[in-house]
Design a protein around this nucleic acid. Structure first.
Lengths: 135, 135
DNA sequence: CGGCATCCGAATGGATACTG
DNA sequence: CAGTATCCATTCGGATGCCG
């Protein structure tokens, strides 16, 4: 049991009923991770987050932000002006988590060349299964 | 532009067409993150991964492992004995990524008390909206 | 501008049964 | 044991339209 995610506190992300698993799913969901990553450089308005996380619809962005807000990872500040202005920011709870997401993304960047090479090798192997690629 | 996920290499996880985004989604998908985390302590057999990641069905586990394998993050070693034995392990590509996932999980553990407190405060505020909780 | 409600197709994902 | 195939319910998620 050298390294991993075991905890002596009686909580485990592997437990389907543990809050940590829920939070993990919100933070790593399809849009959750990108949303948190988009906020590390400072607060953004709704539309700005949407532009940063390209591909997300208003609906999904709204849901994602609401969940992150409910978990206390993101704060929502609304100015009831016209037009309205809403700023989203990381909370003290959310910032360290968002930073770990950025670390993960950085690591993926670092491994990306190897991953792409692997994917290409796989496709080549599928195209001509007679000859293997281990040479 | 103090800190974040910008890259000068012309790749961005925020680009829907970038491979890094695809890999991020596989690694942080519903079962992807837990599967990678389950493998950090060493190789596991199919059923062992399933037991570690409690709640996952055979079908989803199989799909998840196949995607991670296709990305080159996980290796699959099959002994064609009877009964068959298949071991899944992190590759050199996958290990650093899995470790960042574990870091993320650790960070969530650390913030969990605050998150739970926040969630409870929210529910209390909803239950009695007349009185606010800012005192 | 910053949402929420509705509709609807697509994808996810569980249960079960079956194979080597 | 380690899957795959089929079926089916649930959810995801985009498009559109409306509201403050």
């Amino acid at each position: 049991m050298s390294r991993g995610t075991e905890r002596v506190d009686g909580m485990s992300v592997f437990d389907p009923d543990c809050t940590s698993r829920e939070v993990l799913e919100h933070a790593t969901g399809r849009w959750g991770a990108l949303t948190l990553a988009a906020l590390v450089n400072g607060p953004l308005r709704f539309a700005e987050v949407g532009r940063a996380v390209s591909g997300v619809s208003d609906r999904m962005l709204s849901q994602t932000l609401q969940r992150l807000e409910a978990d206390g990872l993101v704060s929502r500040t609304q100015q009831s002006t016209i037009p309205p202005r809403v700023d989203y920011d990381l909370t003290d709870l959310g910032r360290p988590i968002a930073e770990r997401i950025c670390d993960l993304i950085e690591t993926i960047y670092e491994q990306l060349p190897g991953i792409v090479t692997h994917q290409r090798a796989l496709r080549a192997a599928e195209a001509s299964p007679a000859r293997d690629t281990s040479d």
